[in-house]
Design a protein around this nucleic acid. Structure first.
Lengths: 204, 204
DNA sequence: GTTTTAGGTAAACGATCGTTTACTTGGAGG
DNA sequence: CCTCCAAGTAAACGATCGTTTACCTAAAAC
């Protein structure tokens, strides 16, 4: 079979995402692949090496993604209603794409689950979990919201709470999508939330 | 030392909350208690029995808590502004108490973390996680919001999304409190969020 | 005062853990 | 055709896993 090393990575991640690092044995991984556990060591130095390679892979994938995906520009304030609506639609599309990425893309979804399971025993994983999720969406939302609020109210502290209002439901719906067989319901609720949020923002 | 059985439960929960069930050995638990692992089996049949006892304990504690803690009554609609404000304050106090319970109470906090770590490998734990968190606060919030919205707009679907808007930031701040040494910041943000939410609701 | 027993120890059980070793084998390169 | 090597197997390594056993001892019970 071709590219065994890649298949080991994928299978290990899937198992780590369900059972946690300590809950998965090297034997488990090998069994799924239909090889003996000794064969794994032709591709990776150790079980920890597999785990590290998964982290490394995600970091590469993330920077690559960030390179090609220039976050949508356009602030809330700089023009009339038409431009505001365009900015809204950009943010909505961006957020939904992010949500789909973290819930539907197999690698990203499993990676997020794995970090969730390792966050308390491994501080570095807790940091990564915050970086990827809040860094990806809420940080971006915070910037936009900060600009939006800059001329209407005193900004910095409000921006933080409004960003929380925006991102927290999206984050929570990721967890709901995990433990539900109906992925589409969660996605529809994300859209509803964003529309609701946008409507509130328009009234300010 | 008195009440070894209880101390085993507490220590095991603390370890399960950090490392997950599979990440904790019977030896680990015994070492913390300063006894040999053989002694554990004088109090519990197995490692799984300890885990089950933790679940059982929480279920008892929860029903007992629900009995004495009658959720605050008073809806948004049935009177003038004064009564509405009282209802708001009741909900706020209730929510903050719930937040403090799930983040500061050692047993509840560790229990929530443990469920978080076991949710993917054990469907029953995923159900419990949803029940305790969303059932405790969001279900209650949903009822109140539904009553509140009943005469203003078409209710059922909106109630669900508004309950999400209310609870999701609180839920997310629990996770932030976990991986932060500064617990007070998260609590203050919870208050801020509730105030912000209430202000939005008042404008409707 | 004797007996019983709850609660501890130390040691061993077979199973499984992650890892290493010795050996095999099919196919690419010279 | 011969060589080499990547990629597999089977077996064994010591360590640790959850659990059981045999033994001990202090205090409670009769």
């Amino acid at each position: 079979m071709i590219d065994t090393k890649e298949r080991i990575l994928q299978v290990a991640l899937k198992l780590f995402a369900r059972d946690g690092y300590e809950g998965v044995s090297v034997r488990n991984i090998a069994d799924v692949l239909g090889i003996t556990k000794g064969a794994l060591y032709k591709h990776y130095e150790s079980k920890q090496d597999i785990f590290d390679s998964i982290i490394k892979r995600m970091k590469e994938s993330d920077t690559e993604k960030a390179k090609k995906f220039d976050v949508p520009v356009g602030t809330f304030e700089n023009a009339g209603d038409a431009c505001r609506n365009i900015a809204f639609e950009n943010i909505k599309a961006f957020s939904i794409e992010m949500f789909k990425y973290w819930t539907e893309d197999e690698f990203a979804s499993n990676f997020r689950k794995m970090l969730t399971l390792e966050q308390y025993r491994n501080p570095e994983m807790a940091i990564l979990l915050n970086q990827y999720l809040t860094g990806g969406v809420v940080g971006y939302a915070k910037d936009l919201i900060r600009e939006s609020l800059l001329n209407t109210r005193n900004s910095e502290k409000d921006a933080e709470i409004v960003a929380l209002e925006y991102f927290a439901p999206i984050y929570m719906l990721m967890g709901l999508a995990d433990n539900s067989d109906d992925k589409d319901t969660a996605l529809k609720m994300v859209e509803k939330h964003i529309d609701y949020f946008m409507e509130i923002m328009r009234r300010e």
